[in-house]
């Protein structure tokens, strides 16, 4: 049963495959990366609100200038900006990942 379910596509996907109604994918890596910034920024939302819209008590990050966000994140990462927790969290991300996060959040409207 398990084996069967493993190879079974959902009917919709099976239909898509049969009829060749595939999606335009240039390659697995590119496709996988399409939502990388969104997914990385979602790791911030627990504290800073969905898409950076804070529900209160934490900084709202949506719509903040990209460079300013990046500057802050790097300052947390280096320890030059005092923090209770952000210095510990920022160190968990590569600079490239922080840049993607800053880019994504800065592109959100400041207000929902």
């Amino acid at each position: 049963m398990k084996k069967e379910s493993k190879v079974k596509l959902s009917p919709i996907l099976a239909s898509l495959c049969l009829l060749g109604v595939g999606l335009s994918i240039s390659g697995a890596a590119a496709a996988a990366d399409a939502n990388l910034a969104r997914n990385l920024a979602a790791t911030c939302a627990n504290c800073h609100g969905t898409d950076g819209h804070s529900a209160g008590g934490m900084d709202s990050l949506a719509g903040e200038a990209r460079d300013r966000l990046m500057q802050k994140l790097l300052a947390f990462k280096s320890g030059s900006r005092p923090a209770t927790i952000m210095h510990q969290i920022a160190r968990g991300y590569s600079d490239d990942q922080l840049a993607l996060i800053a880019g994504y959040l800065s592109a959100r409207p400041a207000h929902e």
Binding site: A28, A32, D33
Partner: peptide, 8 residues
């Protein structure tokens, strides 16, 4: 659902 691999 979109026929894509998951994020690596």
């Amino acid at each position: 659902l979109a026929g894509e691999p998951p994020s690596p």
